[in-house]
Simulated assay, not measured.
Amino acid sequence: MKKSGFSLVEIIVVTAIMGIVMLIFSPMIDAFIGAQDRLYNQSKVDSRLNEVVEFIKRDVRNARSDSNLGGEPVGVFDSDDILITDGSKGKKVIIKTTDLSGNPKFIQYAVDGSTLKLNSTDSFTKTIGSSVVLSNIEMGEFKYQDKVLLFYFKIDLPDRLDGKIRNEVRDVGITRINLQ
């Protein structure tokens, strides 16, 4: 009498071969998942930092000179809100620009603890509530010298990503072609 199906020995051999194949391919699968996670997180970080850089670039390119900023369109301030004129680094930048109607407007970006805050007012001294533009900042600073605004931001990453993805915008320089 002929039996159909597999014997116990055949099933054990196939299971052993499948186990060996899985052991061989599991590091590759793990590496692929890790690479995919790093790419996804790098994309998120790059997107957020690029968005902040574009905000600041737009505001600097529309800047207008102002006496409150030492006759410059952009002023960097230290932690005591004193205008820095020697090219040192500060935690706050104020940019004088205009709104769509042509009215003067002051835009302030300030590193406050671990956040970058944006504040827009119609007066140099008047302060309205600010909104957070970038959070989890490990380090952030501004420098304005020779008509060029330089800034540096470094984002604090979770430990699992630390050292595996880029998390900073280093020395981005913004200048205007025709400063007034």
Rank of each mutant, 00 (worst) to 15 (best):
S4G: 10
S4T: 14
G5P: 11
G5Y: 13
G5L: 10
E10A: 02
I11Q: 06
I11S: 11
V14Q: 10
I17H: 06
I17E: 04
G19L: 13
V21C: 12
M22Y: 07
M22S: 14
M22V: 14
I24R: 01
S26F: 14
P27R: 03
M28N: 02
D30A: 14
A31K: 12
I33G: 08
Q36K: 12
D37H: 11
D37C: 01
D37M: 12
K44F: 09
K44S: 11
V45R: 08
D46E: 14
D46W: 01
L49P: 11
N50F: 11
E51G: 06
E51K: 11
V52P: 08
V52W: 06
V53D: 05
I56A: 04
K57F: 02
R58T: 06
R61L: 07
A63G: 15
R64F: 02
R64P: 01
D66G: 03
S67K: 10
L69K: 13
L69W: 09
G70E: 13
G71A: 08
E72A: 13
P73W: 04
P73L: 00
V74C: 08
V76H: 05
V76S: 04
F77P: 09
F77E: 05
D78Y: 03
D80F: 03
I82H: 07
L83W: 04
L83K: 07
T85L: 10
G90E: 08
K91F: 03
V93N: 05
V93Q: 04
I95M: 05
I95Q: 06
T98I: 11
T98A: 14
D99E: 12
S101N: 10
N103Q: 12
P104E: 06
I107F: 01
Q108M: 15
Q108L: 11
V111M: 13
S114C: 00
L116P: 09
K117W: 09
N119M: 15
N119S: 14
N119C: 10
T121R: 04
S123W: 03
S123E: 10
S123Y: 10
F124V: 07
F124T: 02
T127H: 08
T127S: 15
G129R: 09
G129E: 14
S131C: 00
E138D: 15
E138L: 12
M139W: 04
M139H: 04
M139P: 00
M139K: 09
G140R: 09
E141C: 01
E141T: 07
E141Q: 14
E141V: 03
E141F: 11
F142N: 01
F142L: 05
K143A: 00
K143D: 00
Q145W: 00
D146Y: 02
F151S: 03
Y152Q: 07
K154M: 02
I155E: 06
L157H: 13
L157V: 12
D159W: 02
D159K: 12
D159I: 03
N167P: 04
N167F: 01
R170W: 06
G173M: 02
I174M: 03
R176W: 02
I177C: 02
I177K: 10
I177F: 11
N178C: 00
Q180P: 14
